[in-house]
Design a protein around this nucleic acid. Structure first.
Lengths: 242, 242
DNA sequence: TACAAATTCGAAATACTATTTCGAATTTCG
DNA sequence: CGAAATTCGAAATAGTATTTCGAATTTGTA
């Protein structure tokens, strides 16, 4: 349906020949942007289709020509978000020093994400809680595999590398530990986003700070006997990373 | 409406005088049990009031005489769950050895909870994601404070005790660390419950095992320099670490 | 025991909501 | 130009939470 459509609007000559597709892209974007904004501000389940159509300026009948249901809209937004995040994550993992440094960069990225886009994180938390369980595994798998082909092996390698280069403690389980750590950080991140200001008023600390402390403890637990205080201290106070 | 009503059903003599109240209690229970079961099996948002009334054997009109809305039902169940869990948690924290042992007991309890009642945990995850943010802070606070009066000071003390007795590393922040750790474990626990079987089929490990690994890493990160292997390999199945 | 209060039922009514349908009007394509 | 794609408007369908009310039943009490 949309294969050769997005190569580029090369010149005016081509532009006319692609008006249908280009228009469809624009409409789709308008709908997704409007929906995303509403979801962020009010939560998935409190947003009605009528509101989405109103905010995006199309009629319901048009709406359903782009998305077959409200769930479909949610799914599309989730897909885009995951795509974005995984790109950033892969970038963050380029650190050449050692495995611990790469893990640190990845987790720091998640903390920044919470501080900068708490609404998006909250949206993903709602997705997990409401939809993820019932939707067919294939749908999730196809999305995820399209993003990171082999996360299992990859995470396993990471732990193995770290044990080899001495940055991680040697008694970690390559098939388990990295998944457990990532899940803990994502879980903490999304819970903080869900509770939002409630946490801040009750605990007196910004949610970003709480998550960074969780990450600090986890990294301390991963660290090999060698590097005692190397990465421990006030870790992420953003210095000019050259 | 129901002040001096629940002291006790002393004798048969009294029993008759309290039939109204007793009946109301029973009805309330029937509704909550039926609703809880449905929520566990299908998720909060997929359960209709009609189903709840059918399952509990009352008419809608009767239903709304006990709970003013579906949210009200959800809230009541959350309240009971929190009450239960906090009782168990307080019990688990009685370990007299040292602060690290108490924290370990608390986190282990959460892992057992996930393994034994994944549906309940999932229910709480949905509550957090869908409701917790919008509901008035006072409502959450009144519930929580009724359960554990001073969690802040309590958690702070725990860290301070641990630093004093040497079981925790000395550079932890009494006002921050324990909250961060608890939040990470609860977040991980609820995320695993939300994703449920999906995690198991994709990662090939039961969710309980993943959570226990997260907890193991966190505890390693908390541990003071003194007790190297003391509590590490303990609850974690095999692995005679030496 | 008789009467008032509390509880339940049944059934219908209201007000939202997601989703569909269809024909007419407009724009794009070949 | 004529066919195809797109949008609109407006109304229709079906499912949902919540309310209302009078009749029937049970319980409390004088």
């Amino acid at each position: 349906m949309k294969q050769g459509a997005k190569t580029a609007k090369s010149r005016k000559i081509r532009k006319r020949a692609r008006t249908y597709d280009a228009h469809r892209e624009r409409q789709r974007r308008r709908i997704l942007d409007a929906a995303s904004d509403l979801f962020d501000r009010r939560g998935i389940d409190r947003v009605t289709m009528a509101e989405i159509t109103a905010a995006s300026g199309v009629q319901p009948s048009t709406m359903y020509q782009y998305f077959s249901s409200k769930d479909d809209v949610v799914w599309a937004i989730v897909g885009e978000l995951m795509q974005d995040k995984s790109g950033i994550a892969i970038e963050a993992m380029k650190d050449p020093r050692n495995a611990l440094a790469r893990i640190t960069a990845l987790l720091d990225m998640m903390a920044s994400d919470l501080s900068q886009n708490p609404e998006k994180v909250r949206f993903m938390a709602q997705f997990d809680a409401i939809y993820a369980r019932d939707w067919p595994v294939e749908r999730l798998l196809s999305l995820e595999s399209q993003i990171h082909p082999e996360p299992f092996q990859f995470f396993g390698e990471l732990i193995r590398d770290g044990i080899a280069d001495g940055s991680l403690r040697p008694d970690l389980d390559p098939d388990l530990t990295m998944h457990a750590v990532i899940n803990a950080v994502i879980g903490a991140q999304r819970r903080l986003a869900s509770l939002g200001s409630k946490v801040e008023t009750e605990y007196g600390k910004p949610i970003g700070e709480l998550l960074r402390e969780s990450i600090r403890v986890l990294l301390l637990g991963l660290r090999g006997p060698g590097n005692s205080t190397e990465l421990t201290g006030k870790s992420r106070t953003k210095k000019r990373s050259s």
